[in-house]
Design a binder for these strands. Structure first.
Length: 425
RNA sequence: GUGACUGUAGUGCAGUGGUUAACGCGCCUGGUUGUGGCCCAGGAGAUCGAGGGUUCAAAUCCCUCCAGUCACCCCA
């Protein structure tokens, strides 16, 4: 092993895994375009404030701890994006997309950075597929985003998917609910675990999705967010459910599903899948009508989701779903003798220029044909062109069909068209 | 930040105090002239994660460190 390793929490995506990546990202893009989403690539890093705004006091210190922040030029603090949404929103406002026709449907794919302790499906650099709709209140926008996510997993072959759905209300109804929740939980304060004690004052909503099984009796009697929605939020939620029913999309109301950040409003959802360890959610999303204003823009409603590509691939592997292999060059060019080698070089580039995939036998020392044939076999070449000295004196080469072990003499000028014909068949 | 577990060739692993650290896969070379897969024979490749300690003797026992995995925290 070499002296250096990939940094903690990062990973190399080796050629063996690339078929998964190409497939998943390809499906995500194809589906996005079919739904009318357009791609937007924000920079890898932003002004740190972009990510701090909207995270609120509750999670503030946590957010700082888990971001990759750089203080470079004086007074300028930049942070490698820990999520897409704030940067995409910033770009939307900066370039006046909010002044054009609404809604604006955008998607992004790229790396995300979080200073977490890594675990299964969670890395310090991971890749997200992100989609959002800005400038639309209509619950049908929520629906579009949800189905884009859901149908991506469906098209990739996932089975046993479940939609978890909740509404977290809005600034009008959420605070009153939180007050009631705190009131309820305070009477059971003694039963709260250490972690939940802290949450009670800092981020009480998160107690709802605690992993402390002993809390079940207390939580089952806790007031439900859905029972405390204002009229607007209740109507929005009911309409969304109506659309889901129309499409016969299965979902489970999960009144304990919450989001940590302040700018989330109304709809919250996750798609859960089996087989990726403790991280059941393969995607999380929701509505964030408050974000634009927090970034100093006009009020712009937004709804979106993000999904980790690494987790999607973990799930595919757990389900034994295998992507199509990447195409490999069908032709291998072997040679015998120094003069033949120059001709082999000429042939291999001519084949490539003609659009045919071809590999050349390497090795400066004279190589035995056996070793070159072995290599061709290992590489699963369909055709091997043998450029031998005896053939060359006759102005031709031997072309071997590796499937049938048949070998054909082909005049030099005809080699490219000859193989084009065979490969087209 | 907390906890549990794990570090032996490229890779997957065997080996729990006693000579040259085993095996599968992969890699290389042969098996008569210039022909792959299967088979056969050979070969290369390991500071046993690092440092210290115990012992006549350590991959094996002890300590420290490092690295990784999983989980907690957090999850945007």
């Amino acid at each position: 092993m070499s002296k250096y390793q990939a940094p903690y929490g990062t990973q190399d995506i080796l050629p063996a895994d690339q078929p998964y990546w190409r497939w998943v990202i390809g499906e995500a893009e194809a589906l996005s375009l079919r739904y009318g989403f357009l791609r937007l690539d924000p920079p890898l890093f932003e002004d740190t404030q972009i990510f701090l705004k909207g995270s609120g006091e509750a999670s503030d210190f946590v957010v700082q701890k888990e971001m990759y922040t750089l203080e470079k030029d004086e007074g300028q603090s930049i942070t490698f994006r820990p999520e897409f949404t704030p940067g995409v929103m910033r770009a939307y406002l900066e370039h006046g997309l909010h002044a054009g026709p609404q809604p604006v449907k955008l998607y992004s794919i790229g790396p995300i950075f979080r200073h977490d302790r890594p675990q299964a499906g969670r890395y310090r650099q991971h890749t997200q597929f992100n989609a959002e709709i800005f400038g639309e209140q209509d619950p049908v926008a929520d629906l579009e985003v949800m189905l884009l996510a859901y149908n991506l997993y469906r098209d990739l072959g996932y089975r046993g998917l479940s939609f978890q759905l909740n509404s977290t209300g809005c600034p009008r109804c959420k605070p009153a609910y939180i007050a009631r929740l705190v009131e309820h939980l305070s009477t059971y304060a003694a039963q709260l675990g250490e972690v939940d004690q802290i949450r009670l004052s800092r981020n009480p909503l998160r107690i709802l999705d605690t992993k402390d099984a002993g809390m079940e009796p207390v939580l089952s009697q806790a007031p439900r967010l859905l029972d405390h929605l204002c009229d607007e939020c209740r109507t929005h939620f009911a309409e969304l459910r109506g659309y889901l029913d129309v499409l016969a999309t299965p979902y489970v109301i999960n009144s304990r599903l919450v989001r940590g950040l302040d700018y989330y409003t109304k709809t919250v959802f996750e798609v859960w899948a089996e087989g990726i360890g403790a991280q059941a959610a393969v995607c999380g999303g929701g509505r964030y009508d408050g974000l634009a204003e927090m970034l100093g823009g006009p009020p712009v409603p937004g709804v979106g989701f993000a999904s980790g590509i690494e987790r999607i691939i973990l799930g595919l592997k757990a389900s034994n779903i295998v992507p199509a292999p990447l195409p490999e060059p069908p032709i291998f060019v072997a040679y015998l003798g120094g003069g033949a080698r120059a001709k082999a070089v000429e042939i291999v580039f001519a084949l490539r220029d003609a659009g045919l995939g071809a590999r050349l036998a390497f090795g400066w020392e004279p190589r035995s044909l056996k070793s070159q044939m072995r290599e061709a076999g290992r590489l699963d070449a369909a055709w091997v062109i043998i450029v031998g000295e005896s053939e060359l004196t006759a102005g031709q080469v031997s072309v071997r069909d590796m499937k049938t072990s048949q070998q054909f003499p082909v005049p030099l000028p005809d080699v490219v068209p000859w193989l084009q014909n065979r490969l087209a068949a």
